[in-house]
Amino acid sequence: MATTNEPPLDEIQWRHPGLAQSMQGIHSNSVLFYFAESPFFDRTSNNAVLTSQAMFNPTMFHLIQTRELFEGRLREMSGLEFIVAQEPAEMAPGTGTGVWVIRKQTRRKREPEDDISVHATYYVNGENIYMAPTLADILSYRMVTITSSLNKCFPAADKARIWSPSLGHVYKSTLNTTASRAQALESKGTTPMPEGQGGNNSKVTPESKKTNQPVLDSRLAEQSLIIHMQYGGEYMDENPITGKPGEFHLSSTGRKDKLQTLGLASLNTSLKGPTGPGLDKKDAKGDKTPKTPTGMPSKPRRRKSRAGTTPTSS
């Protein structure tokens, strides 16, 4: 016996334009009967039993004329049924979304309310009918998608990771960045040769320089940022010490400035005058201010006046 592989019901779309036209469109009184012709309908449901009874029993024919009477009779029965759960939202008279929601459910008569178990939900959009997927199907699909993505991610991460004794576990992008930094430093420190001495291979066209310039700029900018992050809080001396052990001196001043300083010190010493053991302290200190020569009239001295007397000159 040959078996046909039919797609799942939640993956198909059913429509019958001729049937919808014979029913004068999809409306409130025809939506359930239009749905009954689709592959989603169950022929053993109460809808099929009630429709066949009304077709052959004139006293029940009025039940299939309107949806309100038809669903009212279904609510009095127990078993599997299809009812309209939601109607199109009326935004204005004569207009709406055109989407009907039909539920497949089992009704069990209970007091005070019936026990209802929903099995599936369907959408009627115009002439098209779809089956809504269940929550379990949605979650299983999402989990399969996530698992498939992780299965592709982990092997790619393992391929990009490399282990070395000096660096440990690193990724290829990090190694490429380190190599590019070293290449940028080497290219910055080297001096280009003249065109006549370098040969054909040493000549670099202006187009290649323009092409490599943005790459070099980005590498230098990245290197500068890394240096700033590592040594941003450290500062170098304004006058770094140069020389070899035993002969250290400041690079900015040097020995020339030191000799000039020593020369100025000796010059200041010579200007002060000779000093020695034969000289007296008075001579070493220098001559004092000369006194007033004799013979010259001196200024008259004034006596201190007492209270009540007038000072007189001597």
Rank of each mutant, 00 (worst) to 15 (best):
L80I: 04
Y231Q: 06
T294H: 05
T294D: 09
Q230G: 05
F41H: 11
H228T: 15
V124P: 01
L185F: 12
R301H: 02
S313K: 06
Q13T: 13
G246W: 04
G18F: 02
P245I: 02
I116V: 09
F70E: 03
P155D: 11
E11Y: 03
G96K: 02
Y130E: 02
I138V: 15
K203F: 04
Q24T: 14
S117D: 08
K304F: 15
R142G: 08
A184R: 07
P88M: 07
P297W: 02
T275M: 07
E37R: 07
D158L: 14
Q21W: 06
T289S: 06
E87G: 01
P165C: 08
F35G: 00
I241A: 12
F154K: 12
V99G: 00
H62Y: 05
L267I: 05
Q65C: 04
Q86W: 08
S78E: 15
P293W: 07
T242V: 15
L74G: 00
G246D: 08
L63A: 07
E247P: 00
T44Q: 09
M55E: 14
E186V: 07
S180G: 10
T261V: 06
P274Q: 11
F33Q: 14
V49K: 04
A54I: 01
P155Q: 10
K244D: 12
S30E: 07
M236C: 03
Q86Y: 02
L69S: 09
G278M: 08
R303F: 01
R302Y: 10
L279K: 10
H228S: 15
E186W: 01
P297K: 10
R67E: 13
P7N: 03
R107E: 05
S314I: 05
Q223L: 14
T190K: 08
P112E: 11
P7D: 08
S251K: 13
V170Q: 07
D42H: 04
G199F: 01
A179F: 11
E234V: 10
D115Y: 04
L9G: 03
A160I: 14
N57C: 14
A160K: 11
S30A: 13
L63N: 08
L262T: 01
P133R: 06
T106M: 05
D114N: 11
S187A: 14
D257W: 02
V215M: 12
T275I: 05
P88Q: 11
T275V: 11
C153L: 05
A157L: 15
V204S: 11
T312Q: 10
M236K: 05
G94Y: 04
S313R: 03
S270E: 09
N5K: 09
M60R: 07
S52V: 10
T174F: 02
Q197N: 03
L9M: 13
S173H: 08
Q53N: 09
D114V: 08
K109P: 01
T147S: 14
P194W: 07
F70D: 02
P165T: 05
F33L: 15
R15H: 14
R107F: 00
Y171N: 12
Q65D: 13
P133H: 01
S252G: 09
I226K: 11
M229P: 00
A221Q: 11
R75T: 12
R161V: 04
T106E: 15
P245C: 00
L264T: 11
I227L: 15
H228P: 01
L259R: 13
